[in-house]
């Protein structure tokens, strides 16, 4: 691929050069400039749902003036020479405060949002709280990890407007879901609940349970049966890897090394 010349831009007063198509968030990370995010994960496509990473961008115009816009840093690719990015201007702070206040009204009980809001001196939201139990900000990170990383697409965003939710098809136990828990792992607000009981792993939000596999040596749970099966289909690894827990696998390897070493 043909590499284009790096672009000259300014971010928070720092003049720097950057490869075309780099997002503002990527650049900021490289320079150690902190931009808060909720719905972003480096391994998953960006979506710009939470708006928390909003920054101010001055785009030079042909006439010599500048056009200032508020953009989400996570999905704004840098394409112009002479961009002037400001991640901490008064306008940015005002917008971010407003976004956090709205998020706090939606999810008043979520620690991460409370903490983030506190950093911007917001402890209470002036907007009405619809459901004090609500924890989901509808960023869709769970649906994207399920589709892009796991490759199962067991869940999706369903409905429109205030009826929007993350659900399995028909809100019934999903056949596609293998209870890998990737959705709960990436969820920025901890809205996805997983419980382990009676030898089963249940993701409450998706109403889906999967049997847990036990280690043949010690009897500890290794993981969901369906996940092991899924990995087995995709990679070629020795069979016993799927039968033992991490500790027993290590012990076995140790033994083997010692005996062969003699």
């Amino acid at each position: 691929m043909l590499r284009s010349d790096p672009l000259k831009i300014t971010i928070d007063g720092i003049e720097t050069e950057v490869e075309k198509e780099t997002t503002i968030l990527q650049l900021a990370k490289k320079l150690g400039i902190e931009i808060p995010t909720l719905c972003h994960h480096d391994a998953i496509s960006t979506y710009g749902a939470c708006r928390v990473c909003t920054v101010e961008v001055g785009i030079p115009r042909s006439g010599g003036g500048k056009r200032t816009r508020m953009v989400t840093a996570c999905n704004y690719p840098i394409r112009d020479n002479g961009l002037n990015i400001n991640t901490k201007s008064e306008r940015v702070l005002a917008v971010r405060k407003m976004i956090l206040e709205l998020l706090l009204a939606r999810c008043p009980g979520v620690k991460r949002i409370q903490d983030m809001a506190k950093e911007y001196e917001i402890t209470e939201s002036r907007f009405p709280i619809e459901n004090p139990e609500e924890e989901c900000i509808l960023c869709g990170l769970c649906t994207r990890v399920c589709q892009e990383i796991i490759g199962k697409s067991a869940i999706s965003l369903v409905g429109r407007g205030f009826e929007r939710k993350v659900l399995t098809p028909f809100d019934e136990p999903s056949e596609d879901c293998i209870a890998c828990g990737a959705c709960a792992y990436v969820c920025p607000t901890g809205a996805i609940k997983i419980v382990q009981e009676d030898g089963k792993l249940t993701i409450k939000n998706w109403k889906t349970s999967r049997e847990l596999a036990k280690c043949l040596e010690c009897g500890e749970y290794v993981g969901s049966e369906a996940v092991l099966q899924y990995i087995k289909e995709r990679v070629s690894l020795p069979e016993d890897i799927f039968k033992l827990c991490e500790k027993c696998r290590r012990k076995k390897l140790q033994k083997e090394l010692i005996t062969t070493g003699k």
Binding site: S153, G159, L167, P169
Partner: peptide, 12 residues
């Protein structure tokens, strides 16, 4: 096509 996508479209 994943069922979840069809369900999502049908609901939208």
């Amino acid at each position: 096509i994943p069922l979840s996508r069809i369900y999502s479209v049908a609901n939208f």
